[in-house]
Amino acid sequence: MSELKFKHVTKQYGDQAVLKGVDMTWAAGHLYGLLGRNGVGKSTLMRIVNNRTFATHGSVLLDGTSVVENEAAQNRIFLMSDAMLYPADRTVAWVFQITKALYGDFDDTRAAHLTRVFKLDPNQRLGRLSTGYKTIAKLIVALCVPCDFVLLDEPVLGLDAPFREQFYQELLATYTERPRTFVIATHLIEEIATLIDHVFVLADGRITLDEDTESLMAKGRVVSGPAGLVRDYLSGVNVLRTRSMGGMLTAYTLDAPLETPLPAGVTLEGMDLQRLFIELTAEVGTDED
């Protein structure tokens, strides 16, 4: 099966290092979430994959060969970003046609369905579309290209809630019809938490979390109760962060001792992906004592 591998990818701008050795593997047929704080380098990473910018060190390999200046590899990769790189005086229909010519194929049936569902007139010129509809046009292209690795960098930026929901449904529809890899970089973690099967967290220039969503959710716990009891329960356990409110302590952890019986007065709850991400990437240290 196809594999896209990052080997110690570094990106430096002058003396400032954005990516400091990213090691990661994207396998075929997965829905990946690439999470990270603002400015951490998610977009840069995706642009390196799509041959829009160069890594300072390290390599990105598709089935063993570097993707840099490699048209055969780039033919199997597609990046949808906030940049609008199509000419403004051309129509949406033209973009579909030219994409088909350049990628060898295009899901015309699905494109027709999507333009209908999103109420986008394919004969509209790109320059005339609102920001939201420009995004929709690009999204439709991304969902219809025959590529094995489709990278979506903030795909729903500027879309209203109904359209966002529609997008996730359409994404799943095309994914189940033709399984391929989608990598979604987004800040709207809650919305994609249940549809991605694997999570990558990019922090401080490296991948700090690389795990299946299911096992992550099975480990994430919020422990709440009287401060003393909670601390006893979690003594020796790695805690992501704690929050205190009077005598009550709330702790966020991935290593709760689930076999140990819970003391009375202490509650144990699950932690959703967004909460996990917030606690994981918070500044080191707690906000009390």
Partner: peptide
């Protein structure tokens, strides 16, 4: 060139 990059065309081409 923006269009080229969007469609996976190499700088060489």
């Amino acid at each position: 060139t923006g269009f080229g990059f969007q469609n996976g065309i190499s700088r060489r081409s």
